[in-house]
Amino acid sequence: MLRADPRRLAEEARCPSLGEVSLRDLVFLDTETTSLGGGAGVLVFLAGIARVEGEELLLRQHFLPSPGGERAFLEAVRGDLAAAGAFVTFCGKSFDRHRLEDRFRFHGLPSLFGSERHLDLLHPFRRNVRGIPDHRLRTLEDRLLGLRRIDDLSGEHAPQAYFDHLAGRRGEIERVFEHNRIDVLSLVALTALLGAGRGIDSPIGEA
């Protein structure tokens, strides 16, 4: 169901070792955190992880029900990421990766992101796609995938939704799950576009 030429992905990502990775070993990852900045007080509370299994795309969301369970949560996330041949993220080289690594180190767990094999889609799309107002994921979905999110909870509201959830207040945590799910699916679609072997700045119609 996912068609993309690994060599082309490697070329676009300027990362030759990606060309040796089978598409089945790609792991698509997006996290939600308690702050959009960094530092020891920032928790990852939701990790959406997808991979291709057989003819299907399997998407699993790991959720941290409360901070006391963080170690178990991180170990589950690590279990899901351990077999990855390469990571695919959007802006993950400067954000998601560091948030997770900080939490791993906090708990004395070894690093997972040591390898070079990390396709951060932001960079090839920023290099190749011109004439659009910005290169946020939302904009790429709109201009390249023809996808418009309806009633999407913007990412910056995710921390408050989580705080409300912890405090037992009615909130929008379910909408954060949905937001994260669509983010991960977009990673898959953008990877297909990038690896499709034709100009990625032309829309591909319905996804």
């Binding site: 308690t34 702050s35 960094g38 530092g39 007080g41 928790l43 901070p67 006391g68 705080f163 912890l166």
Partner: peptide, 19 residues
């Protein structure tokens, strides 16, 4: 102040800021 979350006998930072 709503900036810490108490869970059992532990207080966890729970705010989007960098104090």
């Amino acid at each position: 102040a709503g900036i810490l979350h108490r869970e059992g006998d532990r207080y966890h930072w729970m705010a989007p800021t960098y104090p």
